[in-house]
Amino acid sequence: MSTYTDKIRETAQRLLKECKVEMVIGFRKGSQPMMNEPCVVRSPEEVDQLIWDSNCGINLANYLTNRKEKIGIVAKGCDSRNIVTHIVENKIAREQLVIIGVPCLGMIDKRKIAAAADGEILSVTEADGQVMVKTAQATQTFAKSDVLQGNCSVCTHRNPVIHDEMIAEPVPEQTDVDPYADVAEIDAMTPEQRHAFFEELLAPCIRCYACRNACPLCYCPTCFVDESKPQWVGKGQDPADVRTFHFLRAYHCAGRCTDCGACQRACPVGINMRLLTKKLNKDCLELYGWEAGLSTETRPALDDYQPNDPENFIH
């Protein structure tokens, strides 16, 4: 992974020196273990801040919305798909971007590590598919495949779909995974069970909107939850309001979500709201053969009419 870091720094430095870009968006080490933070580098002297490891789960496409500068951006598979979505939705122009592609082997789920580790985590390092967690008491080792983020373990687009530079050879894509196994599980339930399942899933929600803020798709100037004339949804923690918020948030991402996992990662109470967006992803794939963010040439499923679009829900 350190070779990734070196290559990213080298590339960022070259782009900045040659004035190909005004800034490079990447990651730097956070103040806590497993909490890398996004960072903007504007001069060649600052590139040593940039790093890459398995804690770079934040989706950097979120920082491109409506920017006017020439930007270099570090992009793993899901980031690159969200960059494509941004280009398709005219939130940034392709010409403004130099995309530094990073083949990704998945990000670590900090909650899984925190749950498995004894005591306070002091540092987390990794080598050869192993994750070493150092706590005050001991050093524990986990297989990285056991502590991957849920979305990464079923990811089928690890390599950037769009890039100008690549910092390493593409990694093999996972082909033996079923990304929608958990959705199928819910689909097998009765309506009563499903209602109860989501009631329980969403019960801890504190309406902080971290999921919305972390999501690169959520760039409306005023979000529907913040509007008061009209007020679309109540602002409290009434279960019906919480459910309405999550339902609409997911629906606004229909045909656009790349399952990058930023929402779930940002959630302070650990709600897996991806079960909602994934249902829509699955429907888009099954009904329209559509996966978001794979090409700047095709129009999104909900933006495009075809005479053979399924319409069996209409009487």
């Binding site: 959705v183 819910i186 689909d187 309506p191 009563e192 069970q193 499903r194 209602h195 109860a196 399942f197 989501f198 009631e199 459910r243 339902f247 997911a250 629906y251 229909a254 909602l276 249902k279 829509l280 429907d283 829900f313």
Partner: peptide, 9 residues
């Protein structure tokens, strides 16, 4: 409709 039913409607 699909998502509403997914959520238990």
């Amino acid at each position: 409709k699909n998502l509403l039913e997914h959520m238990g409607m």
